[in-house]
Design a protein around this nucleic acid. Structure first.
Length: 288
DNA sequence: CATTTCACCTGGTGGC
DNA sequence: TGCCACCAGGTGAAAT
């Protein structure tokens, strides 16, 4: 599911439901590649912790955790604590098919469930991931630094910094947008949609895109991502939110998965090519 | 070093 | 209905 707008939607939904709750116990599957931190260490680190807050960084969902001893006090004495006092973090990357669900402990456990966190409130947080591209990581902030996505956040980056990302790069502008070390959070849908809005062909070399075009791209990204967040992201097959609610931005797609259909602006059939190993969609007349 | 390709997985879809 | 090829919102390791 998950690009920036979907991850933002999920992080907000999970935050609303579990902020201030306490993790009583943690269960993990035995699929080893799911765990960037060994599963036993995650289980030990998580149990007893208070969830101070949940937020997005790039395509990652970050749980800020308070120490086990501080315990349930946080839940009743509002306002809920902020991230400042966090002692550890639980970091979830959804990969292609990962989902975070808040359910009752009794509800049937879906196939490919890799994590179950039993919460003091009586709810359960679950991580389900059929394709196993998702990753779970635990960080003890007393021992290591806090998590920060490597690339810049596309919603807050300024004009100069944005242009500098592409300077001297000979890869395609599409590949550059997908590179998480440059921009954190842009994936295949929003790369294609923002390039359409900016009128730029996905296969152009990044260093050949003019400064004015790059600025159009920055603004297009901002606009597309902001609108998508407002609509709860894109639900392409099945989806999303902590209760399984769907997003609606797929109705706004201009090019993504519209191969052969008429361009919304000029009626020319949308073209599909493979670029950077990904299906890439554009209008041959509107994009240059 | 920068850039490109491919393996990693399961599941859904559409053609025959 | 079954079988098969192809496609999928991501990424990091290997190859070029």
């Amino acid at each position: 599911m998950p690009e920036l707008p979907e991850v933002e939607t999920i992080a907000r939904g999970v935050d609303k439901r579990v902020r201030g709750d306490r993790i009583l116990q943690a269960w993990f599957s035995r699929v080893p590649q799911t765990f960037k931190t060994p599963r036993q260490r995650q289980a030990k680190g998580l149990s007893g912790c208070t969830i101070l807050s949940v937020h997005r960084a790039g395509k990652h969902i970050v749980f800020e955790l308070g120490p086990p001893a501080a315990a349930s006090k946080a839940r009743t004495t509002q306002p809920a604590p902020g991230p400042g006092v966090s002692e550890a973090q639980w970091i979830v990357h959804l990969g292609m098919t990962g989902r975070l669900l808040v359910t009752s402990p009794e509800s049937p456990v879906a196939l490919h469930t890799h994590a179950r966190l039993l919460l003091e409130s009586g709810r359960e947080l679950r991580f389900v991931d059929p394709r196993r591209f998702g990753r779970l990581e635990f960080r003890d902030l007393r021992r290591s630094a806090g998590f920060g996505a490597p690339g810049s956040e596309p919603l807050t980056i300024g004009e100069r910094e944005f242009a500098a990302l592409f300077r001297g790069r000979r890869l395609s502008i599409k590949a550059a947008l997908l590179n998480q070390e440059l921009l954190a959070g842009v994936g295949n849908i929003y790369a294609d949609e923002s390039l359409f809005q900016a009128g730029i062909r996905p296969r152009r070399r990044a260093n050949r895109v003019k400064r004015s075009e790059l600025e159009r791209l920055r603004l297009a990204l901002h606009q597309v991502l902001t609108t998508a967040i407002q609509l709860g992201g894109s639900s392409v097959s099945d989806y999303v939110g902590a209760d399984g609610e769907r997003g609606f931005f797929q109705l706004e797609h201009c090019v993504y998965q519209r191969t052969g259909e008429p361009c919304r602006r000029c009626q020319t059939p949308i073209r599909r090519v493979v670029e950077a190993g990904r299906g890439t969609h554009y209008c041959p007349k509107c994009q240059h």
